[in-house]
Amino acid sequence: MKLSNKTVDRIATAVFYFFAFLIIVLLAGLIGFILFRGIGHLSFDFLTSPPETFKTGGGIGPQLFNSLFLLVLTMLITVPLGIGAGIYMAEYSKPGKFTDFIRLVVEVLSSFPSIVVGLFGLLVFVNYFDLEFSLLAGALALTVFNLPLMVRITEQGIRGVPREQKEAGLALGLTRWKTITKVMLPVALPTILTGTILAAGRVFGEAAALLFTAGMSSPRLDFTDWNPFSPVSPLNPLRPAETLAVHIWKINSEGIAPDAAQIAAGASAVLIITVLLFNLGSRWLGRYLYRKLTASR
């Protein structure tokens, strides 16, 4: 039997709708499940108090702080490097073997399993450079992990600027540097920013690369001591720091507090809510900046 084109078309349409539906159901189910299990456990106390090893009632305060602080540290390193390299790739590199090689390296780097990046961090940053388990070592490992994404996003953003805009800048007698910074970067900024926040979401949720770099424990932190050189200060970048994602993994695998399962569920909910906020925030900020920078209503 031969099906008419129209029938084939209808079947194909139905199949694609089904796939789209499947993905939505999968996502909704996953998020719903995690939130359903964890949200009852959320409270101000849970978000701010330190964890307990043997008793119930422990919180995730230091872990949450560590995750955010590590995020800031990583971005401080990743963003300038990534934007610089991205501008080079988009505007200065000449097509040829060398540029192709850089691109290949960036691609390979971005497909590295994060556990391997973690081991690399252990060998190079923790041991060789003697940073020990520290926020800084973790931030450097995550930089290795995120730099390719950042470079690619910047390059795409800059390349996406219409040629007419670039020529308009140059024709006004602007130098290449000023054309890039004052004409092209503002146009590319929403793209770059959206990508940066997505990268931030990855940093926030990353666990494997941090096990051997930022470590799996935190010292007792004194949240009244803001001197970054003091060993108990939360701001000290050379102290070990267990992040939220690592904490979830640890509690699930070796937690002995009686309420370990609830704590893991609550922490997972916090993690996923934060990542969702990053994603929504990046969209909103991208749109806002675009409107603001282009003065369009």
């Binding site: 007419e164 805009q165 020529e167 308009a168 920078l293 282009t294 003065a295 369009s296």
Partner: peptide, 14 residues
């Protein structure tokens, strides 16, 4: 030596 292009290309600004 200033230049005006084929497609109007104002900057996306005021």
């Amino acid at each position: 030596v200033g230049m005006v292009f084929q497609q109007p290309n104002p900057f996306p600004k005021s």
